[in-house]
Design a protein around this nucleic acid. Sequence first.
DNA 1: CCAGGTGAGTTCCTTGAGGGAACCCTAGCA
DNA 2: TGCTAGGGTTCCCTCAAGGAACTCACCTGG
Lengths: 139, 139
Amino acid sequence: MTCSIARTLDVIGEPWSPLILRDVYAGITRFDRIQEDLGISRKVLTERLKWLVEREVLERREYATNRYEYALTERGTELVEVLMVMVRWGDRWVSPDGPPVLYRHHACGQVSHVELTCAHCGGPMTAKDIDLLAGPGSS
Amino acid sequence: MTCSIARTLDVIGEPWSPLILRDVYAGITRFDRIQEDLGISRKVLTERLKWLVEREVLERREYATNRYEYALTERGTELVEVLMVMVRWGDRWVSPDGPPVLYRHHACGQVSHVELTCAHCGGPMTAKDIDLLAGPGSS
DNA sequence: CCAGGTGAGTTCCTTGAGGGAACCCTAGCA
DNA sequence: TGCTAGGGTTCCCTCAAGGAACTCACCTGG
């Protein structure tokens, strides 16, 4: 499908993948730890990890003989931005007890959250602030 | 799970949902049009739409007697922001022919894309720019 | 030196969700 | 009064997810 959403979903669309990325980002990088943390079946975790490694979102590293851990690649690190926006939505609409996790921004040292802005003018850029146009890669 | 990512995925984690939201956002708002556009089975589309309406992400409106269309609620419109960040990733990493869709920003009139910034200081805020802390809603 | 533990998976069986095609009901319309 | 379109249901079948048990290599203590 000539749609960047569909193409992104092809990589991380299945429901466990974002949670796997979250774990790896948060420092849970080993097979058993991820399996235990998510309660995912070992079979499916094996498949997902292999898939994400093939798509170059994760990297498989031998940290001791026959012991492996997973790490985010550059592609994977940029996917975490998608998660950050998901977190914002979840915090706002489905977290009755307040946000479970907070972000401290290195640059200003404050606990904050992410805002979407226009790469060109820097103003707010949300769903209501844009029009859609056909691009070069459209069919 | 006390995790905003998991809670958000509970609402739109299944792979068709983001594409349904994209369609509705892009103006494809009726059952048959969505079904045709996505190639989803009618049964699953029925289930997904009902689910999204129950979660108050979509709204079902009778635009003529016994004719219904779907529209984004405020919650749903904010979910489109997640899609916009997915689009950015897809454009960057898995769109060999260039972006299929472009965004024109109302405020500045330019074709642009979305950037993540800190709500507090306005500086760039990506996965590498933050530390994670436990929040009030953590277990 | 061998018993037990841990990490990282495989294998196998069972159940449930998704796909496809056909069917249904109502409203307009010629 | 039959035709078509919109908006779904129903039924069957397949295939992927879950669960539990098994494997194999390395390490560590006694």
